[in-house]
Design a protein around this nucleic acid. Sequence first.
DNA 1: AATAGAAATGGTATTCATTTTCATATATGG
DNA 2: CCATATATGAAAATGAATACCATTTCTATT
Lengths: 152, 152
Amino acid sequence: MSCGNADLLVRALPAARRTRQRGAVLHVLVDCSDFVSAQQLHALTTADGIGVGLTTVYRTLRELEAYGRVDVVRDDAGERLYRLRPFGRHRHYLVCRSCGRSRAVDAEVVEAWVDEIGESAGFDAVEHTVELTGICATCRSATPPLAGGGEQ
Amino acid sequence: MSCGNADLLVRALPAARRTRQRGAVLHVLVDCSDFVSAQQLHALTTADGIGVGLTTVYRTLRELEAYGRVDVVRDDAGERLYRLRPFGRHRHYLVCRSCGRSRAVDAEVVEAWVDEIGESAGFDAVEHTVELTGICATCRSATPPLAGGGEQ
DNA sequence: AATAGAAATGGTATTCATTTTCATATATGG
DNA sequence: CCATATATGAAAATGAATACCATTTCTATT
Ligand SMILES: [Mn+2]
Ligand SMILES: [Mn+2]
Ligand SMILES: [Zn+2]
Ligand SMILES: [Zn+2]
């Protein structure tokens, strides 16, 4: 799906060169509607026949992150998951802990709150992480309730 | 500082037994005004002469987390940092990326936002992570500006 | 097209937080 | 004191992320 899309992204990176590998990572990333890990991307490019070294996958992701082209979250195990950032501005997501599907949420309220907090505390260069997880309606109706719990 | 405080916490945990080790971890934790890692806690108990196994440190922290007695953030490297939760209800923090000092911030706005998002999306058991980092006033005036950047 | 130099690649080794295992120690109720 | 469920911790395993560095590949220039 969408070949020109990945090309645009390659161009958006500061890297001096357009390589087959970087293109492959971006191409796979464009096709992923949800968050994926570096390891998954590595496996996906391999499955596509376009082998890309794990090192390069990490490098490309780090670069994408540094230039604000992806949103990043961490799963329960702490693994980083990446997703292309739709329109320049970053987004926040509500992710289902059961099936992994995510949806972007409107976080204007939070963005404003962050600005105000930073300002009133006299902090510079304030960055923020906001992650929401839950159980989506589909998964709830498909899964028997489990005991325990603890989060307040 | 404050001996009874740690005792109270030991009692608050569901564990069946009060052990020297768990007490030691809690005791050190009470003395930490800022976020600390499991590794640091391990080193601190060792320095205190009360050697506690790394495994036990991790176990105790996991338990504290499960029962909502600590707030958890991740540093840039992804390492988990723990801090005792002041009054039952969890808090969010603004952490200085330079000196590590943190201050709790008022996040009622965000809590309300989270509830609303979860509800309107039809998600159950919504959990959230909100982390703010920046450069505090003290560090700013003490540090020469660095080039680059990227976060938008 | 050939060339040179800079940048990118990727296999391998390494790091390091966290988890698992399991044999041993200990807390606690009776 | 005893029995035993529970807790401990040394050692090994795990696994994501990074460092190293010899080799390959762009790309501007001649
Ligand atoms: Mn935001
Ligand atoms: Mn909150
Ligand atoms: Zn789901
Ligand atoms: Zn500071």
